Structure formats: C-alpha cells, structure tokens
Amino acid sequence: MNLSMCFSRLSLSLPPPPLCSHGSRISRPFPAPTALHLEKIASHSNSFAGSSLSLGNNLSLFSMPTQKHSKLTVFAAKKKKYKMKTHKSSAKRFRVTGTGKIVRRRAGKQHLLGKKNTKRKNRLSKMVQVHKSDYDNITGALPYLKVNRKAK
C-alpha cells in the first residue's frame, strides 16, 4: 500500500470541519502526524525497500538512505515594484512649463468679480510659479511629473 493511500485513510477518519454561521465550512490546517500515525504508516509500508522511519523531534517520513541529497539552489523572488498613483485633483491644478517649472493659477478669480477692477482680474488670470518649498509636496502627489528642480 502506498503512502498516499495511508494518508487518505488517516484524513478520512477525521470528523468533517465545522460550519460557520453563514453555512460555509471553516478550514483547518492538516493535522501534524503523530507517533501513532507514523507507526500505522510504517506497518503498512512493506513496499518501501531500504526506507527508514525516524520518530525524533522532526518527525521525518521515510528518508531514503540510498539516494544522495543534491544541492538545491533557492532564488529569492523578485520583488514587484508597484506603480505610484497620481493625485488626480493635483494633476488638474498644476502644470509644468517647457523649462521644467511648476505653475499654478492665482486664487480669487471664481466669484464676486463685480467689485474687482479689470486690472486686478487680469493679474489674477495669469499663471504663477509655485514656490520652491512646495515642490516636494507637489512631486509627492504627482510622481511622474517631469520637474527641473534647478529651474529658477
């Protein structure tokens, strides 16, 4: 009798997993083999020639002394670099000039325009360069913005 048959018999003798409040089964981990399970498996395993059963702390199953252990090379999985998301409202508020400066609109041109004179409204219509101290905040919100930090 092979090893998988023994494990299937042992797993069939376990009670079914309990039900959750909404009716689905609660999964539980596969039980660790105990010394009694290993003795049952060892008694059924007459077909394993040259195999040994160790019941030490590590509970290893059927180590084959006839085979040489080959060196295994474990490669670390490549960590995936995630794309940063653009803050979309910031992307609508800021632009980059051809020289790499970040510009914005002036505040105060949305409402109550009747009491503002024409000269003031024209001044508020123009784009203004963002202060250098705010560049870190803007480039954090807009990671793919091509900014020239040395532009004055």
Rank of each mutant, 00 (worst) to 15 (best):
P143I: 13
R123E: 15
N46H: 04
K101N: 10
R105D: 12
G23W: 07
A49T: 09
A77E: 15
K85Y: 09
R105W: 02
L59E: 00
K78S: 07
P31E: 03
S63T: 14
K119W: 00
K81V: 13
M5I: 05
P29M: 09
G98H: 10
P31C: 02
V147A: 04
S54D: 12
S125E: 14
T97M: 10
H22Q: 10
S45E: 04
V74L: 15
V130F: 03
F48S: 03
K40P: 01
P15S: 11
H111F: 02
K71R: 11
K121E: 04
R104H: 12
Y144N: 14
I26F: 02
L38H: 00
V130I: 11
A32W: 02
N137S: 12
H37E: 15
P18N: 05
G100C: 06
P17K: 01
H44V: 02
R123T: 13
T118H: 01
P17W: 01
Y144C: 06
N122I: 11
Y82F: 11
A35T: 09
R104A: 08
N58G: 08
C20N: 12
A32K: 10
K119A: 12
Q67T: 15
M64Y: 12
S70P: 09
R105H: 09
I138L: 07
L61M: 14
N58C: 04
K78Q: 11
H69Q: 11
G23M: 09
G100W: 10
D136Y: 00
T73W: 03
T139F: 02
K85A: 12
Q110L: 08
D136E: 05
Q129C: 08
M64A: 09
P143K: 04
R123S: 14
E39D: 07
K132F: 11
N57D: 11
L61T: 00
L38Q: 08
A77L: 11
S13F: 04
R25P: 03
L14F: 05
L36P: 00
L19K: 10
I41P: 00
A77K: 14
A77M: 10
A151M: 06
K121N: 08
F75D: 09
S43N: 03
P16K: 07
F62L: 15
S90N: 03
K121T: 07
V128T: 14
K121S: 06
K115I: 04
R123W: 15
M5R: 10
H22G: 03
D134W: 05
G23H: 04
K126R: 15
F75P: 00
F94H: 06
T66G: 02
N46Y: 03
K79E: 13
K116Y: 05
T118L: 06
K83W: 01
L145W: 01
K85N: 12
R123D: 14
N2S: 08
G23Y: 06
R28K: 06
I138G: 09
R105P: 04
P29T: 07
H87M: 01
G23P: 06
A77G: 07
K146R: 13
